[in-house]
Amino acid sequence: MNLALLRKILWVLVGVAALSFAMLLLWDSYRSEQGSDEPQVFRAAFELTDHQGIVRTQADFAGRWMLVFFGFANCPDVCPTTLSEVAAVMDLLGNDAEQVQPLFISIDPERDTPEVLADFVPRFDAGIIGLTGTPAQIALTSDTFHIFFERIEEASAPDGYTMGHSSQLFLFNPDAGYTTSWQYGTPAEEILVELREYME
């Protein structure tokens, strides 16, 4: 191989590396812009189908606190991790658990039919209700809740895509008013202490 050719190849490699790096930076700033909607003071409002096929709105849970998490059933890490924390919170609440309704709202309506959710949320044995709907209903719900989700094409993922989504756990009071949210990874014990303070 002559030097001129080698030099060309090396420069191409540098170009590829630089381009990948630039794209990574751009993608990162794009992603953080997309998520800049901080939850404001708002009320929970939705009309969705639960995992038993029943149409539900926030009015069905009036008088109870709502713990709301957005996710998708194909999510093997963040979603079961958060739902297991929610299950632990419900367990630790003891008799007060009946004042709290945990809701799991799908942001992957394409795959998460009520049947799929029926095979997912009851397994946490915490009274969690799974909610899904048409893509339009889910888009409307995400606007109402000020959350963000996106489909990410990922060749190696099942069905060729995965979802990015807001991963906070939201708390709404018995009037469906936004009360607080916990960042992903907040331990159940910490959530419990704050939840009890709000409930008093």
């Binding site: 992603r31 953080s32 997309q34 998520g35 800049s36 909607d37 901080e38 999510c75 890490d77 963040v78 963000f148 996106e150 990410i152 990922e154 190696s156 993922a157 995965t162 979802m163 990015g164 989504h165 807001s166 991963s167 906070q168 949210s181 960042q183 992903y184 990874g185």
Partner: peptide, 20 residues
């Protein structure tokens, strides 16, 4: 069939996503 190491990342805005 396809075990892979993936990484979940959560942005400051609380958006999580997953990639190899």
């Amino acid at each position: 069939m396809m075990p892979e190491i993936h990484e979940t990342t959560v942005t400051a805005e609380g958006i999580s996503s997953m990639a190899p």
